[in-house]
Design a binder for these strands. Structure first.
Length: 467
RNA sequence: GCCCCGUUCGUCUAGUGGCCUAGGACGCCACCCUCUCAAGGUGGUAACACGGGUUCAAAUCCCGUACGGGGUACCA
């Protein structure tokens, strides 16, 4: 059996949809696991989609995910003549015909006849091409077309249910069905792996394929759709669907790939965290599910957190760098200190599930007077026990204790104990004074290793004054 | 409406006639750990859509119903 040749054939829409990314991934995994070839083909048969600025919106996210292609990208807009020639052949053999029916006329006849679709009105009128004519494919009136699907098994379509669909628009451009058949044949595609939303178009492509005598047909595999909270196909309006948004939010590409692979596919055992190499080794189209899968952001974040924590601190710092040097960061760019940030990373690495959370976790390092969070202040400085005594006590013991994590910790806790306050309540005012919040990194490690005695005392005094 | 696909815990899934008193993961709850929050550990909650068959035996096979989704363009 020859090595498989698969393709990812997106229509350029200005961004890469996560569902499309999943299709691309499954194709790519199949190619990589079988020693096959992965072809990238841009389906821009519609002139509105044939815009160069849309192409990078597809290739950039693919590259980010680590999905590389062996051939292409091929652009259907550059191969139009091939499709037009195919249509001419169908015309010449009588398998296609010109039609000048307007949408209104078709609808009117359908209303009268209580049916739908195109009624074949122009089938035998023998009209010539004109300004407003389209070319329609003459579908068989009887018989069935079988789609042998690797995921769904045999799917049978009654040819009589298929209307004589348009294959060339009145503006002269071919529709994707023709391009699809011609290109899959021309590029030697052996497996067409795509979303289930295309299942209904498959018999049309197959009919064209046979009418054009294009040779051996590809095997199909229709993947279950990705759905949103409403169980409907993920849509740009309601859901977060652009892959670039996930990158901007701070999801790691390897986590994204891992999660995407788990949507509609599983290993068969209990392993869920898989490297790309493991995915390649274990992936099989035969193990793909049939039912739609909900895109669960919570689980994605969990998996991303696992990958984030598995990074070495310096890797983490490097990958977080774009987020702490972005324009909307809560400190003045000049106050940012990369070395200080990197040193601090181990204290916050296990607390974030997305890189976009990093700036908010280290802001007090680069803001001299971090704002006091209202809820935190209320909880600790208003309703908490003896805030003034605790701050004064902390200032006193920190003024001359040894500057190490344990020494600082012991000194502060001993001071709190003397006031009859437990550890949790003792550290709270100091934490708020230093960071502005009740939630944050291990406090005494942060103080002893990342702040000077002077700065620590200054912040405590600042909070004390604000009481 | 018509055509096509689907249906195991809230979610992603394991399960291919007996191993299922249905397993794992996320979430959630409790406890442990603990200077906060996380992380981690332990335990718990929770599902075979329904009805008929077939069979000694059905989550697994067949039929029907219900529900959900996709398609039904001169988008792809």
């Amino acid at each position: 059996m020859p090595a498989p040749r698969v393709r990812f054939a997106p229509a350029p829409t200005g961004y890469l949809h996560v569902g499309s990314a999943r299709s691309a991934l499954f194709n790519w995994l199949y190619a990589r696991s079988t020693g096959g070839t992965f072809v990238l083909r841009i389906e821009d048969t519609n002139a509105e989609l044939a815009k160069p600025e849309f192409y990078a919106a597809i290739t950039d996210p693919l590259e980010w995910l680590g999905i590389d292609w062996d051939e292409g990208p091929y652009y259907q807009s550059e191969r139009t003549q091939l499709y037009l020639d195919a249509i001419d052949r169908l015309l010449a053999s009588g398998q296609a015909y010109h039609c000048d029916c307007s949408r209104e006329a078709i609808d009117e006849r359908n209303r009268a006849a209580k049916r739908s679709g195109y009624d074949g009105f122009c089938r035998d009128r023998g009209i010539d091409a004109g300004a407003d004519t389209v070319v329609r494919f003459r579908t068989p009136d009887d018989g069935q077309t079988l789609v042998a699907d690797l995921v769904r098994g045999d799917v049978l379509f009654e040819n009589a249910e298929l209307e004589d669909f348009v294959i060339r628009r009145s503006n002269g451009s071919p529709v994707f069905l023709v391009a699809n058949a011609v290109d899959d044949a021309d590029m030697g595609i052996t497996h067409a792996v795509r979303g289930e939303d295309l299942l209904n178009t498959t018999p049309k492509v197959l009919l064209l394929w046979r009418a054009l005598e294009l040779g051996p047909e590809p095997t199909y595999a229709h993947l279950p759709l990705l759905v949103g909270a409403d169980r409907k196909k993920l849509s740009k309006r309601k859901d977060s669907v652009a892959l670039s948004d996930f990158r901007d939010e701070g999801f790691l590409p390897e986590a994204m790939v891992n999660y995407l692979a788990l949507l509609g596919w599983s290993t068969g055992d209990d392993q869920e965290i898989l490297s790309v190499d493991e995915l390649i080794a274990r992936f099989d189209l035969a193990d793909v599910n049939k039912a739609p899968a909900f895109f669960d952001m919570t689980k994605l974040e969990h998996i991303n957190g696992l990958y984030l924590r598995a990074l070495t601190p310096s890797e983490f710092a490097a990958r977080a760098m774009p987020y702490v040097t972005a324009a909307d960061v809560p400190w003045a760019a000049a106050d940012f200190d990369p070395a200080r940030f990197e040193a601090f990373v181990p204290l916050i690495q296990e607390k974030v599930s997305k890189l976009s959370e990093v700036p908010g976790a280290v802001d007090f390092l680069f803001v001299a007077d971090p704002p006091f969070d209202d809820a935190s202040w209320e909880k600790v400085m208003v309703k908490g026990p003896q805030p003034a005594e605790l701050l004064d006590g902390a200032a006193e013991v920190l003024a001359d204790c040894e500057w190490s994590t344990d020494a600082v910790k012991d000194a502060v806790f001993a001071m709190g104990e003397g006031l009859g306050v437990n550890k949790s309540k003792t550290q709270a005012p100091v934490r708020v004074a230093l960071t502005g919040r009740t939630v944050g990194p291990p406090l005494f490690d942060a103080i002893a290793n990342h702040f000077t005695r002077e700065e620590t005392l200054r912040r405590i005094a600042r909070a004390r004054a604000a009481l």
